[in-house]
């Protein structure tokens, strides 16, 4: 499990966030919400041990993360970055296999069992047919699923996903979200937890997640989606009037005001993805 207490995060002398705490156990879905630049990615880099915490502690598996080797961390917590194009045309299966690295020796090569695990993970996400396709030429949604498969074969108890649906079109967004939802349901018993950031509060409702709502590098509210994602909280954090409504099907959706007088403080998500 991950236990981050009273963190100050940032780069060198630049403090990006303070007083942040985050606990994630296997089976949890934790959703980070907040405007661009509020420190979500920096927080992720810190809890992944890629960036030292300026203050506070990050405990992973009961041990300070700063005292663990990279392979040890990678066996406990997996990372799904935003879909990107690599410089070389690896096969999708090779990209998934890279998730096995932490379970190989320094000079080790993935073997038949690793390949089987990779194929299994791809099949589970419904992308088995992509195995021998050139990863650099897949669509954004397909790449995102390949990266999630890579995190699955890492066999870590926790998976961190940095805006897994950003830059995806409407259909791919729904598809990736459905897979994440399926993942947390499937692995609830097996003990896998997901920490993800998103710009879409509806997703937190859809995933029935625990929410950490951030503003300016500080926690604004924390708790179940139903109690945290209120019109009042969302309006305060995003600086625009927001209403939360329940659809006839029983799903909650958040509707921002499109009235320009309310002067949004942040640029559109489509323009910047911090």
């Amino acid at each position: 499990m991950l236990e981050a207490r009273d963190l100050s995060i940032g780069y060198g002398t630049t403090v990006v966030g303070t007083r942040l705490s985050l606990v994630a156990r296997p089976g949890d879905v934790v959703c980070l919400l907040g405007p661009n630049g509020c420190g979500k990615t920096t927080l992720f880099r810190t809890i992944l041990g890629l960036l030292p915490a300026l203050a506070g502690s990050v405990m992973l598996g009961g041990k300070p993360i700063a005292q663990q080797r990279r392979a040890e961390i990678a066996r406990r917590i997996a990372y799904v970055p935003q879909a990107h194009a690599p410089p070389f045309p690896f096969e999708a299966l090779d990209v998934v296999l890279m998730g096995r690295t932490a379970r190989l020796g320094l000079f080790g090569q993935p073997g038949a069992r690793d390949r089987a695990a990779a194929r299994h993970a791809m099949a589970r996400l419904g992308i088995a047919d992509l195995a021998h396709r050139d990863y650099s030429r897949l669509s954004g949604g397909q790449r995102q699923l390949v990266l999630i498969a890579r995190a699955l074969v890492q066999e870590a108890a926790l998976i961190v996903m940095d805006e897994p649906t950003a830059s995806l079109d409407f259909g791919n967004r729904a598809q990736v979200l459905a897979q994440i939802a399926g993942l947390t349901r499937d692995t609830g018993a097996a003990g896998c937890g997901v920490i993800l950031s998103t710009h879409d509060p509806d997703q937190a409702f859809a995933l029935d997640a625990r929410v950490l709502l951030m503003k300016d590098g500080r926690p604004h509210a924390e708790g179940p989606a139903d109690t945290v994602l209120t019109a009042r909280n969302l309006s305060a954090v995003y600086g625009i009037p927001v209403t939360v409504e329940t659809t006839r099907g029983g799903r909650k959706v958040c509707l921002p005001s499109l009235d320009l007088q309310s002067a949004p403080t942040m640029t559109s998500d489509a323009l910047t993805m911090a």
Partner: peptide
């Protein structure tokens, strides 16, 4: 570096 580290490589 970042992804390699997250995958368990001492980059």
């Amino acid at each position: 570096d970042e992804e390699a580290s997250a995958l368990g490589v001492e980059a």
